[in-house]
Amino acid sequence: MRTTFVKTLEAIAAKDQNIMLLTGDLGFTVLENFRDTYPKQYLNAGVAEQNMIGVAAGLALCGKRVFVYSIIPFVTFRCLEQIRNDLCYHRLPVCIVGVGAGYSYGHQGATHHAMEDISIMRSLSGMTVVCPGDPVETECAVRTIATHDGPCYLRLGKAGEPRLHTSVPDFHLGKAILMQEGTEATLIATSTMLETAVKVTKILAEKGMLIRLLSMPTVKPIDTDAIRAAAIDTPFLVTLEEHSPIGGLGSAVAEVLSVHDIRTRHLLISGPSMFTDTIGSTAFLRRQAGLDEESVREKILHFKK
């Protein structure tokens, strides 16, 4: 996803000199081409994320559109108040690009994991939260964000995520993408869990259970219409995210159900709200968290009963 992100941004930057990319001293084998091709639109702000957000705000106040790049915890949690006051309060067109959704950094350990970021970013006033599920959605998201007014958080996985969309979807901020029609349930997935959702949908279809699959790349603003329609058309909803259960996609969907008094059943599948006790690869941690295909499938089948 990060390669798609930077390739897309390069194409945009070539045409729009107001686009700037700031990095918190990261980008080896990823940002070199941008750095060398658009030196006037690039800055390595060093390992100083709070300062970097302030600088981005200043640039944006002078007419620039700024993308700020680092690993998720460092470009969100570290500089949260700068994001809140300098970016959100001033409604500036700055996109925070975080790499390493969920357990993407696997055995690098808890300091590098990102299981609370959607929640925290979503709670900020005026912040748009975009969590693409594959490289195709990433490209669409970057193109859309580049023309979007206001602060944005772009949550990326890491590298090597497969393409899940066979064609370019009709992508709009705040809109779900229908990936598979079905009647027995609606599975809503975001970010790094879209791949798992696609596989689970397929396995369930083979077992004769046809479910609707919605990709939800924008977690804020959430697509209320798609949730309402799913609640009407299918007997229950399942949300799936590589995030804590607090404040992420599942919470956003539950809020819609509650605020709009939409009656349905909702199974929230997420990781736990705690640091991992064990150390291991991304796949290992996802299994531990019950976010592997088998666990997700079993949870859905159990909930169906």
């Binding site: 950094y105 055995h107 690098q108 350990g109 300091t111 590098h112 064990t278 150390i279 291991g280 690869s281 290992f284």
Partner: peptide, 8 residues
């Protein structure tokens, strides 16, 4: 997987 020794 399961080690005590992470990358940090």
């Amino acid at each position: 997987d399961g080690t005590l020794f992470a990358g940090h």
